[in-house]
Design a protein around this nucleic acid. Sequence first.
DNA 1: TTGAAAGCGGTACCAC
DNA 2: GTGGTACCGCTTTCAA
Lengths: 340, 340
Amino acid sequence: MKTIKDIAKALNMSPSTVSRALHNEDKISLFTRERVRAYADKINYKPNHFAQSLRKQRSLSVGVVLSSIPNSFFAEVINGIESVMNSKGYFTIITQSHESYAKELSNIGHLASRAIDGLLVSVASETKDFTHFKALQDMGMPVVFFDRTISEFPTHQLVSDGFKGSYLLTQHLIEHGYTRIAHITGAPHLSTTQERLGGYKRALQEAGIAYNPSFVKYTMRGGMSEEENQYAFAQLMTAQEKPEAITTASDRLTLSIFSLAIEKGFAIPQELAMGGFNNFPGTHLFSPSLTSIQQPAFEMGKTAAEMLIELIERKKNTPAAYTVKQLQPRLLLGNSTLKK
Amino acid sequence: MKTIKDIAKALNMSPSTVSRALHNEDKISLFTRERVRAYADKINYKPNHFAQSLRKQRSLSVGVVLSSIPNSFFAEVINGIESVMNSKGYFTIITQSHESYAKELSNIGHLASRAIDGLLVSVASETKDFTHFKALQDMGMPVVFFDRTISEFPTHQLVSDGFKGSYLLTQHLIEHGYTRIAHITGAPHLSTTQERLGGYKRALQEAGIAYNPSFVKYTMRGGMSEEENQYAFAQLMTAQEKPEAITTASDRLTLSIFSLAIEKGFAIPQELAMGGFNNFPGTHLFSPSLTSIQQPAFEMGKTAAEMLIELIERKKNTPAAYTVKQLQPRLLLGNSTLKK
DNA sequence: TTGAAAGCGGTACCAC
DNA sequence: GTGGTACCGCTTTCAA
């Protein structure tokens, strides 16, 4: 691997001149700049990233902690993040928590030792303690939360309007004649869970339908555990008072519960209507086509990345005015929630 | 950020001792080791990765170049790669080519300047020139190809048996009474394209069905371009001699062509049977459920990562004996290829 | 068993 | 405009 010193020696000048020439500084004569450039190209010189980072105390890379890459929602989010980071010259290191607190903790540790310049996080569903994020932030690391956030955390946050999404879906079901509507959701302490539940309740309330707590089922692993999902579904459908419609609050849950209902032989939507949060491509090809609340995943990644860059490149002493942004979800109608 | 020097000063010893103690070297007294460990823990010391990499001339990170993260197949592959890399202490930097040669080239450049220890590549469909990979390899960078490979490239390679997958699907269709079977595939120069086409041809040949070149359509962007897909589909279905079945050679193509057929109102499988390579979860919920060839994506990532680690950690002077591994795909039967 | 010091590749301050 | 050089944090050889 060729270094600046090699170039300096070959061209008979000092390393500092070479460095400056490569950075195209005006102080260096155009002639020298050209000579250096040409030679660097010729020997295919690449700056050593570690030396640069060590010296400049910044790595031009950011870390991402999210639940799972094969989840279509997050896959699209990553795409959005990378589109921004690449154009700004930053690298993106992605880690998966698989909804586990322990994994999240160890990922954060690894990322910290990589001296990343900033961190994008969608909190694992198991996580209830935030001191590991706070510790990083106190050390000067910019942190932005997206999707699953910690509302009381002092930093930029980006969420999709889960309240609205859930509200629209529930309202849609009510308009189509359903009144016994269930809601299967994630862990109760999560912001997303609370919002989505809130939208569901509000729609019921506005329609004058009494809220029935036994129609709401929580899953601690947010749909990642098939047993948990089956249990929640069974509890709902073996009760004396069964729901006529189920809404689901996350990608995994939606796919899993829909799949279960088909498996168990429920007629959809005649016997049981279904709809939920879902970013999988192709659910319009399901039988019946699935009514979904789609979140703007790519845009979420893109915007979160922009917020992070803003924090990273802000002057150190500028006091940060943290904002919380909300993106609007879309309700995509399918046949799984048709009028009875 | 605390450094080794801080620890040394606080404990009144030299940086070298601290370094050795942290690495648990026997030369250092147990007492000292414990003292250092305890203090390092207390101040939450994390080694500076850049300094380490700069000094040791290795980064403990690997680069990955693949087509697209939101593609379920690659998302699962990434999962497999990370499971190995994390356990071995390596970091994984993922880049997407979106099937573009230019993007692939620039990704490789970025990764190289990050001084990655190794590279995992699934070649972009546009790529026809391999000198950028060769250059890296000549500089001592271990490279492993997976999925979309360059067969003549001297290194470890890992593919799924596309010939077999395609053969099984075509054979299945023939057994169910179809004879006019089409095949929509990617760019003709790709190894995967040729294999999958090969399996298709072999099955036809064994059944004594004449190969009809007008039943094979190529897409240069491998399903990423909706226009291309529509054109290929239209060409097949507006010809005088229409196929009764279509097989598709990649995830994107399978989803896209299936979607098109539904949209255009074809009765599946009565009028047109469909099946193809597909790793999307949930196609059993399609209407009709989709016959698919599933590739072992997680295992592919896992094995490719292991092969790369093997190359990285091999002693420099050991001559490499490169191997080509094949993983077996599974044929998942659905209703989209039922007997007429 | 521990310490001193050189050096990994670049950058940036200070001279000239 | 250009050169000399200290230094970023860590590892490792040599010496003690």
